[in-house]
């Protein structure tokens, strides 16, 4: 159970290798020990020594975002112990824009992971927390979902879809004590983006983590990282299309 000081006891991370997820767990651990259930494709390969040193008890579950038929079992296992206070939907792939825009097979793979898989996970998480009567779900969206850009629209479209879906879930859960938080970071420096040219307003995984922890504690519906990014997004959405062909 989340307690009166906003401390969280059990976290389920879908995408257990995500750097943002690990940074979030590290930030949560500053308030005391917790149990993290890491769901990932190859759970045994996850590096967790740092988290364990900080007081985390780690459980591992095999999870394949695209194998949506297996998601029910994954959630059944994750929720078979005690209540889960926070579900972090952190998996996603960037893909390769230049290849994906001409290759239907790889484009579908990105869409299946980032959108279909995430929508499946979010629906399972929502049902579990509704039954449980409390909890927080964190959905990692992106600035890329705010407006299609020439350089990353495959990835951007999957995040746009997920973001819209999550907004709908927020409406559906208005009367429940289940908090769905949409996190929209700008360019985040991680392994996933290594080698790419950083965009303006880029942030570190730790900065995203700090915003997630604060937002989860305060019940914030949408979190932009950095905060001023929401104004950048507003401008971006208003730009005429020709300007976006090279962006």
């Amino acid at each position: 159970m989340k307690d009166a000081v906003g401390r969280i006891q059990r976290v389920l991370v879908l995408g257990g290798g995500s750097e943002i997820a690990h940074a979030t767990l590290a930030a949560l651990l500053e308030d005391g020990p917790l149990t993290a259930i890491l769901a990932a494709r190859r759970p045994d390969e996850l590096e967790t020594a740092a988290l364990e040193r900080s007081g985390a008890s780690i459980e591992r579950i095999a999870f394949d975002a695209r194998a949506t038929a297996t998601h029910g079992d994954v959630f059944e296992r994750a929720f078979s112990g005690a209540d889960i206070d926070l579900v972090l939907i952190a998996f996603g792939v960037l893909g390769d824009q230049q290849r994906d825009e001409r290759d239907a097979t790889t484009t579908v793979e990105v869409a299946e992971t980032n959108f279909v898989g995430a929508v499946s996970a979010l629906t399972h998480a929502t049902e579990r927390l509704r039954t449980q009567g409390h909890g927080t779900i964190v959905v990692l969206s992106s600035i890329a979902g705010q407006r299609s850009r020439r350089s990353n629209y495959v990835y951007g479209a999957t995040k746009a879809g997920l973001d819209a879906f999550a907004q709908g879930v927020q409406l559906a859960l208005a009367d429940e004590e289940v908090h769905v938080m949409i996190v929209r970071p700008g360019f985040v420096h991680t392994r996933m983006t290594a080698g790419l040219k950083g965009a303006p307003f880029s942030v570190s995984a730790a900065e995203v983590a700090t915003a997630i922890v604060e937002g989860a504690r305060n019940g914030t519906p949408v979190v932009w990282v950095p905060r001023k990014l929401r104004w950048v997004a507003a401008v971006l959405r208003a730009l005429p299309a020709p300007l976006l062909r090279r962006a």
Binding site: M1, K2, D3, A4, H134, E176, E177
Partner: peptide, 12 residues
Amino acid sequence: KLHGWGRTAGSV
């Protein structure tokens, strides 16, 4: 939704 007298950590 219910919470205690301290109005923290409510649940449904």
